[in-house]
Design a protein around this nucleic acid. Structure first.
Length: 343
DNA sequence: AACGCGGGGAT
DNA sequence: ATCCCAGCGTT
């Protein structure tokens, strides 16, 4: 019994039932793959259902507004995925007559489709013999073959891709690719792998050397930056508030939020008052109160946002304001959505 | 080659 | 608190 045969065998016995496993439609597969980039199946699944319901075909997605796509994506994170996905939907409709490319080379040209996603679509939809290498595959191969190259180094990436190609099953590439990923997610899990009843434990190098918990090797972790966020929640007598769209680079691009200023240290009410007077000179009379005494710490993978929400009640009606009720129509970061809900 | 980019679940 | 998830794009 060789490696790929055991993977196929294990997959046939243990695979989960998932909606994208009962189709080879490139639109469905592409949608699921983009959603599952750096995202667990359990988290992505409800979004997949939501998107397929509102956008049954790539044409439906292409004709939607970016704002609507972002709204449906809200909470899933890595919002550039949604923007690139929408751009690709429009390109497929307008330039490819609604049909996705049917090769790795064609697919990888699409926005938001990299080596992994191109390989996944090419193999699952078109039976192309392209190996997928995601986080699960890195783990399974590193352990089974005892590879010590860091999975996030250039040499490591090349080596694992080459090894994955050597050991794949080209005849049943669809099931093999999904099988090795499923095996990594369920059986050869990061923290608690089930080595006791593993079908390939006999030849697993890491297990033989008692190094399962050490592999795969991953280079360093960057320090997370701390930032102080201050959101200004304006409220006038008609329960209108000011909402802004984030532009330029950085986090949450094109999503909406309340007026924001960052401070070097934790801000106090005097700084907020100064800020309002400077930037909103047309607002004369107002009253400031602090919504949360202790900053809310919103954790991203690379930043910790220490956030205060300042409530600013104004007497006269605000210019260019939106009603509080209409806030639910805008795509907003989870940090903002949580605040709106609790306020 | 290094970094930016979300949110959540498991340990 | 730490890790890591069906990674990609930019610099």
């Amino acid at each position: 019994m060789n490696f790929s045969y055991e993977i196929l065998n294990w997959y046939a016995e243990n695979k989960r039932v998932l909606p994208w496993r009962s189709t080879r439609n490139p639109y469905n597969i592409w949608l699921s793959e983009v959603m599952l980039q750096q995202t667990r199946v359990a988290q992505g699944l409800p979004y997949y259902e939501k998107f397929i319901k509102e956008f049954p075909t790539v044409k439906d997605m292409a004709s939607a507004s970016e704002e609507r796509v972002l709204k449906l994506w809200q909470g899933l994170g890595y919002y550039s995925r949604a923007r690139n996905m929408h751009a690709t939907a429009k390109m497929v409709v307008n330039e490819f007559n609604g049909s996705f490319p049917n090769t790795y080379e064609g697919l990888i040209k699409l926005k938001g489709v990299g080596d992994y996603t191109a390989s996944a679509i090419a193999s699952i939809c078109f039976d192309q013999a392209e190996p997928v290498v995601d986080g699960n595959v890195y783990r399974v191969l590193a352990r089974y073959y005892g590879i010590e190259l860091p999975i996030n180094s250039t040499a490591g990436i090349k080596h694992f891709k080459k090894l994955a190609r050597e050991v794949m099953n080209t005849k049943e590439i669809r099931d093999y690719n999904q099988g090795i990923m499923e095996f990594g997610a369920i059986q050869c899990a990061p923290k608690k792998p089930y080595c006791l009843h593993c079908p390939i434990s006999e030849n697993c190098v890491a297990l033989a050397q008692n190094r399962v918990h050490e592999l795969p090797i991953k280079l360093k972790k960057l320090k997370v930056k701390k930032k102080n966020f201050n959101y200004l929640i304006f409220l006038d007598s008609k329960k209108h508030t000011i909402l802004e769209q984030r532009t330029g680079k950085g986090i949450w691009q094109n999503l909406y939020q309340f007026p924001l200023f960052e401070s070097e240290s934790e801000a106090n009410i005097n700084q907020v008052s100064k800020r309002v007077s400077e930037n909103y000179s047309n607002i004369k009379k107002y009253e400031i109160s602090l919504f949360n005494e202790k900053p809310i710490i919103h954790k991203l993978s690379h930043q910790h946002l220490h956030t205060k929400f300042w409530i600013i009640e104004v007497e006269r009606n605000l210019p260019k304001a939106v009603s509080w009720k209409s806030l639910e129509e805008y795509p907003v970061p989870v940090l903002i959505a949580d605040f709106i809900r609790s306020f």
